[in-house]
Structures are given as structure tokens and as C-alpha cells.
């Protein structure tokens, strides 16, 4: 177990190194000049050179990358500003260190992700199981139809329509937006409610269908028949025996979907004007803010690595045949 964690940790570090290097390379290949953007309209060649120097753009790429890595582990200076480790760089556009910006934005994204995931899994899986157990009957058909409609929706469309109807017109839900959970839990919850529901309707639909088919597959396993042959009541047969088999499939899907969720987070944060990491990523790309882009990419990569590790741990918990 300890060996496993160690190996997983080393693997994660390796992945993050590769991801950051690739981001550097891609950015370097871009024709646009970030220093030019920071320089503004009244840009003289001298000030441009000055900015280039402080941004580190006048040094070779390898040196830039090395300085970046050095900053991550030991911190570094940007002119007069000291950026403490783990320093992911300094954003000249925002005049702020990348780490502190990320730290500011992270809670909003985390709230969105965790809340939506909980909703997606409970609603999607719950209705999926229900549909599987009632398959072929009216309830199954209704749920499948609703799921189909949901899955064909897009966050920006559904979000805007829902916001107009539920918030602006009928005042059923509070205005969406992010408030710190520590400053006002009630407002935090209220503000996140519409984004959560929107994300859940769109993504849970996939889980209804997926869980339904995973459950139907599990129901056809021989050990489920054995459980029936023992005289166990249907509830126990379905939820204790069949569901255990379906769970691994659902979990695998969830692990694969994490990347997709990140993509939809960009749209969700933009739609509901939540100042999270995904929105930050979009603005930094528009501003050619390399340090910030690298920072958001690394956060996203870390998120995926951590989640995948968690999924693997869950496998080992669910299936005794899996050894870590």
C-alpha cells in the first residue's frame, strides 16, 4: 500500500513535469508576443525590452523553464517582488502571483465541482437504478425520455433559459454567483444552486442511461441469480448484489468523465459568471498570460491525477480482487 502511494506520487510528479513542459513549448510556438500585450498602446522599444526582461522572455526557453521549476520548489524574484515557493510564476497582466490568484479562485471551482458531482451521482445513479429495475415499464420509458432530453441540452443554453425563467421571471431561485462559504453559507448555497442544477440536468442524464445499462448487465450475472435462488428479497438482491457489480462500471465511467467535466466547467463558470479557475483559464488565454495559463493547466492536471488515484482506491475498496 505504501509502495503504491509512493509510485503513484512519483507518477504524478512526472505527469505534471511533462504537462508544464508541453504548455511552455506550445506557448513558445505561438506567434503572438505577450510582452507586446502588456506594453499597452504607448509602447516604446525600450519599455518593451524592459517588460520582456522582467517577464523572462529574453532568455532561452530551457532557461525559462528551469527558472519556473526552480520557482516551484524554492521561490523566485520577479524584479522587486518575491514570489514564495511554490511559485508558479507572476502574472504581469493581473500584477499578482499566480499561486495567490489560483488560491483565490479555487474555492469557487471546488464548490461547483463537488456540489455538481454529488448531485449528478445521486440523481443520475438513483434514477438509473430505478429505470433498470422497472425496465420496459412506464417509469423506465419516462426516465429514459427525460434523460435523452437532458443529455441533448447544453449548459449555456439551459443555463441561460433557466436563469431567465427561474430567477428573473418567477424569482424561484436566488441569483447565481459565488460567495465564500465561510463568509455566508446561506448565500453560498443559494448562489450555487442554479449552476449545480443546470450541470446536473445536463450530465446526470448520461448517468441515468449509463447506470441503467450497467445495472441491467449486472442483473444478468450468475451470482445475482444465486442470490435470488437463496430466497433473498428483491431489494437485497438488487441493491446489495447486483449494484456492487454495476458500481465498478459506473465508477470507471466517472473516472473517464472527469476530464469532460473540466471542459464543461469552463462553460458553466462563464455562463453563471462564477470567478473560478476555469474562467481564469479562459481570460488568461485571451490575455496571453503565460504564467497564469501554466498555473491553471497544472491545477487541472493535478485535479485529474488526484481524482484518478482516488478512483483506483475506490476500485480496491469495491472489488477484493483488485490489489493496489
Amino acid at each position: 500500500m505504501f509502495g503504491y502511494i509512493l509510485r503513484r506520487g512519483l507518477g504524478a510528479v512526472l505527469i505534471l513535469l511533462v504537462v508544464s513542459a508541453v504548455t511552455f513549448l506550445l506557448f513558445y510556438a505561438l506567434p503572438a508576443d505577450p510582452a507586446r500585450l502588456s506594453c499597452g498602446k504607448t509602447c516604446t522599444p525600450q519599455s518593451l525590452a524592459q517588460i520582456r526582461h522582467s517577464m523572462g522572455l529574453d532568455r532561452p526557453l530551457a532557461v525559462q523553464y528551469w527558472q519556473f521549476l526552480h520557482g516551484v520548489f524554492a521561490g523566485r524574484h520577479f524584479d522587486a517582488v518575491w514570489c514564495a515557493a511554490p511559485c508558479l510564476g507572476y502574472s504581469f497582466v493581473n500584477q499578482q502571483s499566480v499561486s495567490s490568484t489560483l488560491a483565490d479562485r479555487f474555492p469557487a471551482t471546488l464548490s461547483l465541482a463537488v456540489g455538481a458531482s454529488v448531485l449528478i451521482l445521486t440523481v443520475g445513479v438513483g434514477f438509473g437504478i430505478l429505470a433498470a429495475l422497472r425496465r420496459g415499464r412506464a417509469l423506465d420509458k419516462q426516465l429514459t425520455a427525460v434523460a435523452l432530453v437532458g443529455a441533448s441540452m447544453q449548459v449555456y443554453f439551459l443555463g441561460i433559459v433557466a436563469r431567465y425563467l427561474l430567477v428573473d421571471q418567477f424569482d424561484l431561485l436566488p441569483q447565481p454567483g459565488y460567495t465564500g462559504i465561510t463568509s455566508d453559507p446561506g448565500k453560498w448555497f443559494g448562489g450555487m444552486l442554479l449552476p449545480w442544477i443546470t450541470l446536473a440536468v445536463v450530465s446526470a442524464a448520461t448517468y441515468v442511461r449509463f447506470t441503467r445499462s450497467a445495472m441491467i448487465e449486472a442483473e444478468s450475472q450468475e451470482y445475482v441469480r444465486t442470490a435470488r435462488a437463496q430466497g433473498l428479497p428483491p431489494r437485497v438482491v438488487h441493491l446489495r448484489y447486483a449494484w456492487r457489480g454495476a458500481l465498478t462500471l459506473v465508477l470507471t465511467q466517472f473516472g473517464l468523465d472527469l476530464g469532460v467535466f473540466l471542459g464543461s466547467a469552463v462553460i458553466t463558470e462563464t455562463t453563471f459568471n462564477i470567478h473560478g479557475i476555469a474562467q481564469l483559464a479562459v481570460t488568461s488565454v485571451t490575455n496571453l498570460d503565460l504564467p497564469m495559463i501554466t498555473g491553471t493547466v497544472l491545477v487541472a492536471a493535478t485535479f485529474i491525477v488526484v481524482c484518478n488515484t482516488a478512483v483506483d482506491f475506490c476500485y480496491a475498496l469495491i472489488d477484493p480482487r483488485v490489489r493496489l
Binding site: 450475472q221 450468475e222 451470482y223 442470490a227 448484489y241 472489488d319
Partner: peptide
Amino acid sequence: RGSRIAMVFQDALTALSPYH
């Protein structure tokens, strides 16, 4: 089921739950 009439299936590897 399981009380007065019990079943023994062919392949115990698939007929027993791997999770329990």
C-alpha cells in the same frame, strides 16, 4: 428458495459474488 429447495450451479466462480 434456499430453505426447502436449494440450487447448486455449474460454475461456482461466476455463481458466487466476487465482491462479498
